[in-house]
Design a protein around this nucleic acid. Structure first.
Lengths: 250, 250
DNA sequence: CGTCGTCTTGACCAAAGTCAACGCACGTGG
DNA sequence: CCACGTGCGTTGACTTTGGTCAAGACGACG
């Protein structure tokens, strides 16, 4: 899509290097992974719940999410992902997928065979550390989501989520020029991520818009007042760890 | 406390072996960790939010939890832990703690210096894989909690949480004789884990009691009808991965 | 015996969910 | 070029779930 992503700097390399230095040998190993890419249209399941995948997916372009569906058709989105994220490293060591992964936009993904990564664990301890760290950062986000959904009001949840997404998009080099970002989500997806109903999300977004904090329409997120938005959502980027620094530096 | 835990079988070894085979050298490395133990009374912070710990804590006995506190004194418990769990492996690779850890009962913990584990990553790939897997299982629980708190009703949340705890206690070898478990939690802690108010937890527990699903009083959890309890909470143990198998086998 | 922590109860309130209808933009096909 | 359908967002009226507040019960422990 956007030209700077199609160009060489592999988003996984970019991300791993934001976590720590990468040796030349490791960088080559990671680059090798790009051989098997494929494009996938929007709104497709990349991994189904209960599956036993034999490779991990690396997201090269576009956005994806993980989710679970429970009885009654209720759906909860567990996390959002941008270029550079590894989508199911989880299943590598753990066997069966305990959630589904879906594309939100058209995406490009690379498949990394589990065997490759298991081999890295034996040979490349530094890379192993970085990948492990990446999964730990993932977990840090899950924890914050538990808090978000468990203890915050509707407006706080949405404000917080938008703060997180803005920060992560910035860290991934996907910031707009002003305070705006391409955020291709529907209100229904926002609802499933925050544990609210679509109707209430609509109302709450209007409130945030009316009070001049943030505007979110037509797939574009425009942060109008970052400080007040952060305060509204009780957002403290600490849980994003070095990612937050990367975003600040950008 | 209970004699079988004070005896030799190190609960971490027990747990890691439930995740996969452990080499003799690795087992010795893990055993060595027990040298620096200390007891901690109930309701103490073992790790404070924002701290930069230089070692990980291994829980040898008792129960602990992780939690975050947000503005307004609202508190969300992120996870519960039993003997064998590593409490802050997270911070190993990630720097600053993004949550607090507290003892729920008197506990015994062992401190593992970060340096030790970093050394393992270079030398003991198999052990590395098991530890990594352990953190991934942790993350799987977080994901399920997001769903629990985001999309389930009060009764479902509590039923689901009690199912999870029963399963994990069983996997850790802490099951009672009949369908009963020592679960030293207050209703306030249950409330903080489920994102509900204490009053509502009280009412909901009464409902579960009245309908004969489960009884929870005075630190004892008595499952009266496992099948119906599972159904009530929409509990599918898949997300606990091999832990669920271990519990079934026990 | 008194105190503290925990649980319970009832009355009331507020946040968010549900349902149903409508508007609007976009794409398709006649 | 227009009619139609579809997906998404918005509105209003109403309901429900769970929160809040305040008082009391119960039990363990000093």
């Amino acid at each position: 899509m956007t030209p700077q992503q199609a160009s060489l700097p592999n988003p996984l390399v970019r991300k791993l290097e934001s976590l720590g230095p990468l040796l030349e040998e490791e960088r080559r190993a990671v680059e090798g992974v790009l051989l098997h890419q494929r494009p996938v249209p929007a709104d497709q399941d990349l991994v189904c719940d209960g599956e036993r995948p034999v490779h991990c997916l690396l997201l090269l372009e576009g956005m994806a999410c993980r989710y679970k569906v429970i009885e009654g058709g209720r759906r909860q989105i567990i996390s959002f992902h941008v270029a550079g994220d590894i989508l199911d490293l989880t299943q590598l060591l753990v066997g069966r997928a305990d959630h589904a992964v879906a594309s939100l936009t058209p995406v490009r993904v690379a498949a990394i065979p589990h065997a490759t990564i298991l081999d890295w664990i034996g040979r490349l301890p530094n890379l192993t550390r970085l990948l492990w760290r990446d999964t730990l950062l993932d977990a840090a986000v899950f924890r914050e989501w538990v808090v978000n959904v468990g203890r915050r009001s509707a407006a706080e949840r949405i404000a917080h989520l938008l703060c997180e997404l803005a920060t992560r998009l910035r860290a991934a080099g996907l910031a707009g020029d002003d305070g705006s970002y391409a955020l291709p989500l529907t209100q229904a997806e926002l609802a499933d991520a925050t544990g609210l109903s679509v109707v209430h999300v609509s109302r709450t977004l209007q409130e945030l818009r009316a009070t001049g904090l943030v505007e979110f329409r037509g797939g574009t997120l425009a942060v109008r007042d970052w400080e007040r938005l952060k305060r509204r959502g009780g957002f403290d980027p600490g849980y994003l760890h070095q990612l937050a620094d990367a975003a600040a530096a950008a």
